[in-house]
């Protein structure tokens, strides 16, 4: 709540755009025909404007839970050893980020791959609070589904009701916000379009934006979950969309300061074309 108020106050007094923090796990393609090497970028930024990129706190956990078939057994693979520090360049600054180049043996079998990142709490000095965004990205190999709709069992997470790797532009994406495994009704969600996707092979965002927001409220869109903790967002454009549940997690304090423990999920949409 404090974060929302601060954002409102900032918007009112400074008239600067309301920026939403989003932890990214980025790789260009998440719907893969066959297993391959993956290059993942972990960046804590403001994705619509490709603006101020924060120095990520050290990563607490980074792993993938994969499963082939609905009857298959989920398999957890720790990915911490693949993490490497990088410097990410936004349109306005640069910040400490991570990359993980995964060998093909990690993403070789058919099935779903639920990547999970639990970063350490980040101190947002301007707001005087900590932010910890527990982030998920779901990829698939070969069209064989697995555990995409299963909760991982995180303190807070967004569980998809639509496959995050199989969305047409113009469709909808639905999900449920969980805290300690229970749905969170009336949760505040922020939705942002990755308007400046990363440049291929570089640790930076592309300068050219895909679209322009007519108003600040389009940069970070605000929606709420219903009484069952569910949400639906429309998909007006191909590309990457991030959804963040603000302060949905059970932990409310870090190092004696207020903590916003958020749940983030990304999904990708593609155009219908030949």
């Amino acid at each position: 709540m404090k974060r929302l108020l601060m954002a409102v106050a900032l918007a009112l007094f400074v008239a600067s755009p309301a920026l939403a923090h989003f932890q990214m796990i980025y790789t260009p393609e998440i719907a893969m025909s066959e297993g391959k090497e993956l290059d993942l970028k972990l960046v804590f930024t403001h994705p619509f404007e490709a603006g101020h990129t924060m120095d990520m706190a050290p990563v607490k956990e980074f792993y993938v839970v994969s499963q082939r078939g609905e009857e298959g057994k989920p398999q957890k693979t720790d990915l911490m050893s693949y993490l490497k520090k990088i410097t990410w360049t936004s349109l306005t600054n640069s910040g400490a980020a991570y990359e993980a180049k995964l060998p093909k043996k990690v993403v070789r079998s058919m099935g779903d791959y639920v990547f999970v990142l639990v970063p350490g709490p980040y101190l947002e000095k301007e707001e005087g609070i900590y932010i910890q965004q527990i982030t998920k990205v779901v990829a698939n190999v070969g069209g064989m589904p697995g555990n995409w709709a299963e909760p991982v069992g995180l303190p807070t997470e967004i569980v998809p009701l639509d496959k995050p790797y199989a969305n047409w532009t113009g469709g909808v994406f639905r999900g449920v916000v969980l805290s300690n495994g229970k749905p969170v009704p009336n949760a505040d969600l922020e939705v942002e379009f990755m308007n400046h996707p990363p440049e291929a092979g570089k640790n930076s965002f592309q300068k050219e934006g895909i679209t322009e927001a007519p108003h600040d409220s389009f940069v970070t869109m605000g929606i709420k979950t219903n009484a069952n903790g569910e949400f639906t967002v429309g998909i007006p454009h191909a590309g990457w969309w991030g959804i963040c549940a603000l302060g949905s997690g059970p932990d409310k304090e870090a190092n004696g300061k207020e903590l916003s423990q958020d749940a983030v999920i990304w999904f990708k949409a593609v155009d219908m074309k030949k």
Binding site: R68, G69, E70, E71, S109, M110, M144, P145, G146
Partner: peptide, 10 residues
């Protein structure tokens, strides 16, 4: 070789 069906069945 791994196989399955698109609905997740074995």
């Amino acid at each position: 070789c791994e196989g399955g069906f698109s609905d997740g069945s074995s």
